[in-house]
Every structure is written in C-alpha cells, then in structure tokens.
Design a protein around this nucleic acid. Structure first.
Ligand SMILES: [Mn+2]
Ligand SMILES: [Mn+2]
Ligand SMILES: [Zn+2]
Ligand SMILES: [Zn+2]
Lengths: 143, 143
DNA sequence: GCCATCATGAAAGTGACATTCATTGACATT
DNA sequence: AATGTCAATGAATGTCACTTTCATGATGGC
C-alpha cells in the first residue's frame, strides 16, 4: 500500500501541475515508513540525520500536500502539536490516547458511528466529519 | 445555579488561600452570564466596554482558576482558540459544531458512553476523559 | 539547452497563549 | 485608621508552533 499511496500522490501532483523533487520523494518515503501520528517536528528530526539539507518549511509544506492529496490527515491530540496520520481511501477510525506515554491506539466501532448519525439527524445537523478520542492510561502504563 | 457556582468558586479560593478581588468578581459574573464556549479573547472584549482597566492576562489567569475550581472546562474545537464552557458537578456532554456559523450544540448519549467504556476495556485502557465532536452544518445553515 | 514556473530553505512574521516584574490591592494585625 | 505581608494586576515581553516571504536553485515542456 506504500506503492499505492505513492501513486495517489504522484497523480495528485501531476494533476495539479506540481513538480516532483528529491525532497518530496524523500519526505514521502520517510512518512510512509514511519509510525502513524507523527508531528512535523518529529518527521523533520527523523529526516535530519540522513538529509540535513531538508528544511523545516519543506517538511511542513509537503505534509500539507499529503493531506490535500488525501494520503494524510491532520490531527490534534491536545499536546500542542499537529500530527499527521496515514489515511487510506474509505477508511475511518478513532483514537485511544495514553496521557502518560503518548501512545496512540486506533479503533473502529460501527455502532458508535451509527448512534452519532442518529444524534446528528435528531438535531438537523448534516455531518461532515467527527472526532472521538478517549484519553487515559494505556495497558502498559497501568502496570 | 449561578449562585451555586459562585459559592463553589469562593470556597475553592478561600481553601487555596487566594484573595477575592473586584476583577475576579466581575469576570466571574460576566462568564456566568455569557454564552457557553467562550474564548479568552471573546470574554476579554466583552468585559472591555464596561471595564477597560481589566487586562487580558487577568482574564486568562482567572479562567484557568475557574477550570481549577471545577466551574469551567477548557475546550479545543480546532479553530485555534481555547474555549471555556460552564460545567456543573457530575454533568457531561459532547458537542455538535457547525463548520459554517460556529454554532455549538450539546448532547448526551448514554449508549455511546457505554460503548466507549467497552472499547477502552477491550484494549486495557483506563479512561480519564474523552471528547466526541461532530462537525457539520447546523439546521439553520442547511437551509 | 532555454526558460517560464515551481520548489527550496533561511529568515522573518504571526497569533494565541504564557510569564515577568514593578506596582497595586486585600486583609490580618496593630 | 495605619501598617505589614503577600497575593493580584496588567503592560510588556517571552514562547512556541506554525506560516509566510523572498532570494536562489531545480524542473520539465519546448
Ligand atoms: Mn489514527
Ligand atoms: Mn458544551
Ligand atoms: Zn501509556
Ligand atoms: Zn451553522
């Protein structure tokens, strides 16, 4: 699916008339082979060892492009940094966030989603998106 | 319940050895008689007409005190500003947020809460808190 | 290879919050 | 009422995570 996302991004770029560059290739590679839920700073630092010539602004702008292209999603977990997570077409999930170690776990619950639709319907809301985050201690940190 | 919250705050203050001031009284009054989900800036501007001598920093610090005292809660709706909402002892609710007009509606759904507990249990998470926000168009903005 | 465009990155700007510090105010004690 | 002590205030400044600028460099259609 790494290859699939590279194709999605390449298509997006050519369709937008944007150029392929060494930096973008490197950043995309690094992003796709990283943990999910990475901040700009984290990705920037991760790159810096092998590619000290890639600037923060380029990482920043490239992640925005990933989001525009639909292969990444911006997330706020309240730690003061924007995080980017991988997204796949048609996939959705919510999060469990450990307040001690920062570990983030994903889950899907079809029943919760249905109930959300009902709530929105009953108020006349047209849902665009939602966010459900459960904060607490992960199994590891409870020990 | 305005009086009840004033008492909760007064008790908190005296128990902490903090002082009662004109500013704090004014800010508390203004907060309690405001719409829910107010940002620091909004409250500050609202106060400024009648009390131009109250500084932003004091509003900022006083809202933090309200949160500590348990009569307010900090919220992030992704518009770049922290909002403070009224809270009552033992009460909980989630939010529907209109992406066009900014209108915020509250709801409670016991079944969703239970399902969240189940999800957390199945992963070994100990829940501290959660946030569920549904973004979309409110009934008014759909017309 | 030429060249109109786009991309890059160091540096500067932005905005919302957070802190500093000189001064003021609250209130317990004379 | 005056004093002493320590918390409170607010103008100014600092912080931090973006976000934008602009001079320079790279890309790719011809
Ligand atoms: Mn995720
Ligand atoms: Mn609310
Ligand atoms: Zn943990
Ligand atoms: Zn609306």
């Amino acid at each position: 699916m790494k290859r699939a996302k590279k194709k999605v991004f390449a298509d997006f770029m050519s369709q937008k008339g944007l150029k392929s560059t060494k930096q973008r290739d490197i950043i995309l590679d690094c992003f796709l082979s990283s943990d999910r839920h990475l901040s700009i700073e984290e990705l920037y630092l991760k790159l810096r060892s092998k590619h000290p010539n890639i600037g923060y602004a380029t990482v920043y702008r490239t992640l925005k492009l990933f989001a525009e292209a639909g292969i990444a999603r911006e997330m706020q977990f309240g730690d003061g940094q924007t995080r980017y997570e991988h997204v796949s077409e048609g996939e959705h999930h919510d999060h469990l966030v450990c307040t001690r170690c920062g570990h983030i776990e994903e889950f899907e619950n079809e029943t919760i989603e249905k109930l959300q639709d009902e709530v929105a319907d009953s108020r006349g809301f047209l849902i665009e998106r939602h966010r459900l985050e459960i904060y607490g201690l992960c199994a590891n940190c409870r020990k």
